[in-house]
Write a protein that binds this DNA or RNA. Structure first.
Lengths: 274, 274
DNA sequence: TGAGTTCATCTCGTTATGAGAAGAACGAAA
DNA sequence: TTTCGTTCTTCTCATAACGAGATGAACTCA
């Protein structure tokens, strides 16, 4: 990993010139997902400046690497960009309960017309949040229904889709959705889309929105209660029934499991196997 | 993502100065795993130069970003570094049959004493390969038994371990092993550790080496044959029995499944759940 | 030749899953 | 207020999957 062998470490550090290397920039981009009106939504910003001005993009920006500003870690950069470009406050505010994990890194030459840019993508699961306010370089910011973006399996957008995504963000978003679908199978992260207390029908609505298919209510109920540590009862009952009738569902909160065992497998997996 | 709004994209590109940004460098590091003598091994190089001279590290190096050399994509950089530092030839040679996937990106400030370095880690599964030859900046290169590195769950090495790992490579390797264990559960990638044709006992040995526990031979056999697309029969039989006796096992090759359904879950999962 | 090992298959009891049904609780419309 | 349709929650039942153990044949090594 070192450019050339040297005898002494301090001598090496003194003579080291970072600028002698190829110029690269590192950004973070965030795929922030939430459930609104029973449908999966992603947080997007409309780009104010070039390149791709006017198009929609994932919130993100350059990592403060330590030159003029203080160096920040990658997850911190993700939270900062999310806060800056959307007006949502950071860890102690609206973004306090979100789950954040690294999704992947995208660095193909030419993915950004300005220069070689390596983008570290993060994936966030959030409970229902207020509408964002555009800030930073963003001309606009909004929660957008994922279904309205016309994404294809290959990471493109279908022709005729009104909201076009900049850069390779359609691919990043597609990968993020795929990851979210997988994570719901074997981790309890569906609870990250809910409030602190939730009902089993609410939890089922999360699965149905992310997976895009209806689940058998009875079997789902049995399964959630039988997996150890998935949810724990609060003893209380929701104060209202469903909006179209039905009894008041009981309230639960997230349990202490980090993995679901056995997993909650989605029904229509057969097609994707080959 | 743009530094400041501008009216025209070409005007923007002309005036853009990459050097105005914080200096960052991007590297790739590869966690290359294989099975030798029934035990899981990882490819390591001994560092010739500073920093961490003399310590062991994952093979890796700077990404050619496009300044003086031609820009290369991240996976290409991973293959190139693997080839350069170990003497193993590239895609058409010994490295032709390896599975390569992105593992994660490590960019904490201070992880490299020279400057801010963002490292994109890749994970490789390889069948048994020849001993590597040191090249590039590496003073030595070898397949090292993972068990001999004294890795802890928290990504450190136990005190007293002779081969110390440079940088945060103990953490990267720990994450890679965790990922490998997971992948064996729900993908047919265990076959990537085998040759083109293999027996079911050989495949079981892969699982036992990666998971570090013995499996029930009969149930494993039933399971592998019952999962559609995992393996397909060649009709042939191995020309030798096991080294300690037993009949000649039949030969199989990898099937066309990309996902195992139902998955092959490892037995002792209960402990890791909470 | 004999002893010990391993492959491959089978059995059996337990657990998990999919599909459907039923009673009770509720909202909304008549 | 009554009625009707909806939803929560719990059951049942048939099927599939799994863990543990057993068996006989095939092979290596002493």
């Amino acid at each position: 990993m070192s450019p050339e062998p040297m005898r002494d470490e301090s001598e090496f550090l003194a003579s080291y010139d970072p600028r002698a290397y190829d110029p690269v920039a590192v950004t973070v981009d965030v795929v922030a997902l939430t459930i609104r009106d029973g449908a999966l939504h992603v947080l997007l910003v409309r780009r104010g400046g070039a390149p791709y001005a006017g198009m929609w993009a994932l919130p993100g920006g350059f990592v403060h690497a330590g030159g003029r500003r203080e160096a920040e870690d990658l997850p911190d950069a993700a939270v900062r960009e999310l806060a800056e470009e959307t007006g949502l406050s950071g860890k102690d505010g609206a973004l306090g309960r979100v789950h954040l994990e690294q999704l992947g890194t995208y660095g193909a030459p030419g993915r950004d017309p300005r220069m070689r840019i390596i983008s570290v993508a993060y994936l966030a699961f959030a409970p229902e949040l207020p509408d964002p306010e555009a800030g930073g370089d963003a001309a606009d910011a909004a929660w957008v229904a994922v279904d309205a973006l016309g994404l294809t399996e290959s990471g493109d957008q279908r022709p005729g889709t009104t909201r076009r995504l900049a850069f390779d963000h359609a691919r990043i978003l597609t990968d993020g959705l795929e990851r979210a679908r997988d994570k719901l199978e074997y981790t309890p992260l569906a609870t990250a889309f809910c409030g602190a207390e939730f009902t089993i029908p609410e939890l089922r609505a999360v699965y149905e929105a992310v997976w895009g298919e209806e689940l058998h209510a009875g079997n789902f109920h049995r399964k959630v209660l039988s997996v150890p540590g998935f949810v724990e009862s609060t003893g209380a009952t929701s104060d209202k029934g469903g909006r179209r009738g039905g009894p008041r569902p009981r309230l639960y909160r997230a349990g202490d499991a980090r993995l679901l065992h056995p997993a909650l497998l989605r029904p229509s997996r057969e097609e994707e196997i080959r």
